[in-house]
Design a protein around this nucleic acid. Structure first.
Lengths: 333, 333
DNA sequence: TTGTACGCGTTATCAA
DNA sequence: TTGATAACGCGTACAA
């Protein structure tokens, strides 16, 4: 209420400089039609009074906030912060500021965040949250805030999207595994409530096995390095062979470390794959076979597309990133 | 300009509901003094028209944005995003939204961001950027936006701070190294332009050696896993022993991996320490001796303090986190 | 080149 | 319980 009470307004500047507030406004916005004399006079008083324009009032008057809303899961995953970093870099370059809307695991929460985005008057939004379905996207779209949706195919007048070929890469992985004489059954590590990307992969994993009539396993684990490490350490007491597909590097590392620490060899006894690979996939030892994607690039591209969307010159409203399977030391092939 | 053209205003709701806009405002803000009949009537039209209040106009009228500005380096480090994650969690719990101001490596850039923070009318700010000095903090303070500064001792009427005991932990590390019969010289890995935290540590490292009259090394490296790995791989051709102190996990891992891949043993030949340890310090193999700090907790605490500061009931304006030296497998002791 | 007056979408203070 | 009306701080046609 009172934390900004002494804010200097444009009106006070005008008065102190002996001009009208319109003139001050012109000086601020560097519009022409101001004498060099008055310009310097105004600028001097601005300095002297320590005047800063109110972004709020400017935004209200111009209907532009130079704010971009970004909706992401609150989970502190490396690939998410990489993406954010990419978005942030481009936003900065283009003079935008990012407002963060983090979602929890529930759909209600995600919807509540969408509401906040609408209320917040952002110039555009990037949405990366698996809980939202098309109806929700429709909603934000109906308020005509330009939106780029990540990992969901949806385009519209004011909507574009960025997608990945994860499931294809995964299918290829499964296929080549058996073509190369894979002998033990593959196990997909299921995490509860970990979003659409993972569940799509799981479905594709199952489908790929059904197509070729091979048996497979699904295994439930908590989304935590520590607990997964503990669970697999127990598990490896009785299981000395296996091929495990984990969601992300930390989970895969938990499996790999549990195996190594249990005296099993990678990849001879145990093979591990990380679905969402980050730079840690090649920093960790053994290095992890993973499906790689430059998430920073995903963020950048999304932001570039959003800016084009805002300026109404986005040609291709859909973009697809290739996720590449990179074989490293945690698998035989 | 036109991306929000069809925004429904409170006035239109009032007209459609056949009441005055004051009444609508009361309904929105759930203030009493509204008949149940008119309340439902208004709420119905709000639904029907899909009205959403404008956060901008609300903020302008109330002088409260429910936005918190957070100034952080653009570097995509794990500890920074952990911190951000902590801030974000508390912000969400308390009904605030985060606006991100990322700074580059230059001081000018950091100052420009401070300007933006002031313009943006946030209710408070958390500043975690090593480029800023006290004069800059003074400045933001003079605009009376409540501020929590991380990693810089500065308190004031509307300013608090959160600090760490990194340098103490580092001094202890050096001391105990020589007490335990450390034989090879210690090498501090210097990164250019990597902020105050690192340079403070470096100074403390040097001082600790000078106090006990021991020689030491400073080594320059780029702030990148790949390049550091490459440089050390070359370096280890001619150096078969050493104790290296790196800024963060990735850099330490680069040294450790380069050593291992060059056929050297850790910790027998090469010892490595990570200054800013994150969860990867114990995921990586060998596990890294590091100075640990719960950065998420740092973020949380900062946000809690900021909220208290905003509400004018922050008792202790300075808080210090203990950074703990954790010995793991990358060092002998 | 400069100033006047109105609009942006709310909240809040008074009257009614 | 309601409804005018004045802020909030700024941008901008239009007039001077």
């Amino acid at each position: 209420m009172e934390n900004l009470k002494e804010r200097v307004t444009i009106y006070q500047v005008a008065q102190a400089a002996g001009v009208s507030l319109a003139t001050v406004s012109r000086v601020i916005n560097k519009q022409g039609n101001v004498t060099e004399a008055t310009r310097t006079k105004v600028e001097e008083t601005i300095k002297r009074l320590g005047y800063k324009p109110s972004g709020l009032a400017q935004a209200l008057a111009t209907n532009r906030t130079t704010n971009i809303g970004i909706v992401i899961p609150s989970a502190n995953y490396v690939y998410i912060s990489s993406m954010l970093s990419g978005v942030s870099e481009v936003a900065k370059e283009k003079g935008f500021v990012l407002t963060l809307f983090t979602t929890g695991h529930s759909r209600e929460d995600a919807i509540a965040m969408i509401e906040k985005v609408i209320v917040s008057h952002v110039d555009g939004a990037i949405i990366f949250d698996d809980e939202l379905d098309e109806a929700d996207i429709e909603k934000i779209n109906s308020y005509s805030v330009p939106t780029i949706v990540i990992n969901k195919k949806v385009v519209g007048e004011r909507t574009g999207c960025v997608n990945f070929s994860y499931t294809n890469a995964l299918a290829k992985l499964v296929q080549s595994y058996y073509e190369n004489g894979g002998d033990t059954e593959m196990t997909f590590i299921h995490l509860h409530n970990c979003g659409r990307l993972l569940s799509h992969c799981e479905r594709r994993f199952i489908a790929a096995h059904q197509e070729i009539g091979k048996p497979y396993h699904i295994m439930n684990v908590d989304d935590s390095y520590t607990r997964t490490y503990r669970d697999f350490t127990n598990y490896f007491q009785n299981h000395k062979k296996g091929y495990y597909i984990a969601y992300r590097d930390s989970i895969a590392a938990a499996v790999a470390n549990a195996a190594t620490d249990s005296g099993l060899r990678i990849p001879e006894d145990i093979q591990v794959v990380s679905l969402v690979g980050t730079k840690y996939a090649h920093i960790l030892r053994p290095t992890l076979t993973s499906i790689d994607l430059d998430w920073q690039e995903v963020g950048k591209r999304s932001m570039y597309m959003l800016i084009d969307l805002i300026n109404r010159n986005l040609e291709e409203k859909s973009y697809k990133f290739d996720a590449n399977l990179v074989i490293r030391n945690s698998t035989k092939h």
